[in-house]
């Protein structure tokens, strides 16, 4: 199985290459990608140089153009596709059917992957992308159990890719409007969930209070692990008490599920975290390289090695193992 690693900057990409990534995904520094954060991402020149660097070491680069094109300004997304092709990207990762159509018609030789943002969660929808746009791979949304992934992978003609580590959200991939509701900006249209400009932190007698727009998201007691200030991971006061209404703040860690994912026929394993620093990239990539080696050699898989890097310092196997059913 191929290991797909994130990179938010050229330096992170270089570190991911050095750590042994098979492929790296990254995006341009605008709203065409779903990690449109201040100071992050690649200029056109940086993208060309970074892809050339990765190719020198046999590493592929996938360019994420995975937000939804805005009416009246689709040229921005089309230009991103043109520039990714021009920079010799090994694949473009797309979510918007209009952008996919443009790519398939304008650059028929370009390898096209369906982004997790497209929320293609069943064989019929994946067949649509394969038949209509010649998609070669689909990144499956994080709503599926391993058994469902196996069934889909068996049924479709393209490769499947799944997330194995990193931030999780409420599994409304490409459809979530919580951030839009709170801040007017969303990952789907603006490339940013819970934009930094809408976040406030303050100390209250040793507790950390996080706010997003007009909403208090959480209050972490002294000594309690913190989490991102997203509405989906907010802890709310209700008539029933105080708790996490949508989901606990925890990162996905599917290490223990890797044998089953391999048996399911999954082609590629993806690490989330283009917004994270080089220390994260290097450690997570090296850890999963070791894990995959152990898997190949039949050795026990090292587990829980990355908890310190996880949101809320807590991990979950998410929907892969639906223990709540």
């Amino acid at each position: 199985m191929e290991l797909i690693c994130p990179a938010g900057t050229p330096a992170a990409l270089h570190d991911a290459v050095a750590a042994g990534a098979d492929a790296i995904y990254c995006g341009f520094n605008d709203e065409t990608n779903a990690r449109n954060f201040p100071g992050l991402n690649f200029s056109r020149e940086e993208m060309r140089e970074s892809i050339a660097h990765a190719h020198r070491y046999g590493c592929s680069v996938l360019v994420a153009i995975n937000t939804f094109a805005r009416a009246g300004n689709v040229e921005l997304w089309q230009r991103a596709v043109d520039d990714a092709v021009d920079a010799e990207a090994d694949a473009v990762i797309l979510a918007d059917v209009g952008v996919m159509d443009y790519c398939a018609r304008t650059h028929p030789q370009q390898r096209l992957h369906v982004s997790v943002q497209a929320a293609a969660a069943n064989a019929d929808s994946i067949r649509f992308y394969v038949d209509s746009f010649n998609a070669k791979r689909v990144v499956l949304p994080r709503v599926l159990s391993v058994q469902e992934i196996a069934a889909i992978t068996k049924e479709v003609k393209c490769e499947t890719e799944v997330f194995i580590f990193g931030g999780l959200c409420v599994m409304e991939e490409g459809r979530c409007s919580l951030s839009s509701y709170a801040t007017g900006k969303s990952p789907n249209m603006d490339g940013v969930c819970s934009p930094a400009g809408a976040i406030q932190y303050r100390e209250e007698k040793g507790a950390l209070v996080s706010r997003l727009g007009e909403f208090t998201i959480n209050k972490f007691a002294k000594g309690e692990a913190a989490a991102y200030p997203t509405l989906c991971k907010g802890r709310y006061q209700t008539d029933e008490g105080c708790g996490y209404l949508f989901e606990d703040p925890a990162s996905l860690d599917a290490t223990t599920m890797l044998p089953e994912l391999r048996a399911a026929g999954v082609a590629a394993l993806k690490i989330e975290g283009r917004q994270r620093g080089r220390a994260y990239i290097e450690r997570v990539v090296k850890t999963f390289k070791d894990v995959l080696s152990a898997l190949d050699d039949g050795r026990p898989l090292p587990v829980d090695a990355l908890r310190g890097l996880s949101e809320g310092q807590s991990n979950t196997t998410g929907a892969y193992k639906k223990t709540w059913r």
């Binding site: 042994g20 990534a21 492929a23 190719h55 070491y57 046999g58 590493c59 592929s60 090994d90 070669k136």
Partner: peptide
């Protein structure tokens, strides 16, 4: 600034 030797594969 460094890289690794080989390892990956390219599609294009």
């Amino acid at each position: 600034e460094f890289g690794v030797e080989g390892g990956g594969r390219s599609w294009n």
